[in-house]
């Protein structure tokens, strides 16, 4: 039996592919922004002097990092539905992604915060900076600059991971592919195209994060050195 790959019948479906890719990007954008916020808050909590805060943040990070994303989504999506709480699939998918990537960001940002030398903080204290100023200017800025590469690669991984949300019928790129292949019966061709699109999205995201880094960290751009 020989099989001929035939991409022509898929030509008509390009708007669906495009819409799926855009939704994936949208998911990634929201989850990146919110995940970063959780990461920063979580990292501060993990290094806090308040015992229970440290404990809660620690449990959150370990639970999320040691269970599969698919189980997290099912737990959240079907679990909340069983409580009678129905939310749009878009919200549920982004929520699951944020919870997941927030835990990884927490660990990454924490590593950055721990890399700030204590003498820097002592110097800032003796200059009379407030706690907020110290956190913002002395700790977080250099910490984020230092872990920026790890953070962005984590967010790129999250974009790839968003494909899993198709399992609770989110209409992102993989979800679109599932629909298209079930109509055209051209599964192989569909997934090859989608694989290529994901590859393009990965490159796009990497380039975008690189450009953003150039804008956000002028010091690094001018000196060409890492902190």
């Amino acid at each position: 039996m020989t099989y001929q790959l035939d991409f022509t019948s898929l030509g008509a479906y390009w708007p669906q592919f495009l819409a799926g890719a855009l939704t994936t990007l949208q998911f990634t954008l929201y989850a990146t922004a919110l995940g970063l916020v959780i990461g920063i808050v979580g990292a501060i909590a993990r290094g806090s002097h308040v015992g229970w805060l440290r404990l809660v943040a620690g449990i959150y990070v370990e639970v999320v990092r040691n269970t599969p994303f698919l189980i997290q989504i099912f737990f959240l999506f079907f679990g909340l539905a069983s409580l009678g709480l129905r939310m749009p699939i878009f919200v549920a998918a982004v929520l699951a992604m944020v919870i997941n990537v927030g835990a990884y960001s927490t660990e990454i940002v924490r590593a950055g915060i721990e890399s700030v030398h204590p003498s820097q903080i002592e110097a800032a204290e003796s200059l009379g900076l407030s706690r907020f100023q110290i956190y913002r200017d002395i700790i977080l800025k250099p910490a984020l600059e230092r872990v920026y590469p790890s953070l962005t690669s984590q967010f790129t991984l999250m974009m790839l991971m968003s494909s899993v949300t198709s399992q609770v019928s989110a209409e992102e790129l993989t979800g679109a592919a599932n629909n298209i292949q079930s109509v055209t019966f051209r599964s192989m061709e569909t997934y090859l195209i989608v694989g290529l699109l994901y590859l393009l999205l990965t490159l796009l995201l990497k380039a975008g994060f690189w450009g953003l880094g150039q804008v956000l960290f002028p010091r690094r751009r001018r000196l060409g050195t890492v902190l």
Binding site: M1, Y3, L160, M161, S163, V164, S166, T174, A177, S187, M188, Y191, L192, V194, G195, Y198, L199, T202, L203
Partner: peptide, 24 residues
Amino acid sequence: IQVVQGVPLLIILFIVYFGLGILG
């Protein structure tokens, strides 16, 4: 490496699954 790391595992899984089917 770039290709495998740039495509979701789910898609790799589908391509292998349907690819084996196509090979008969």
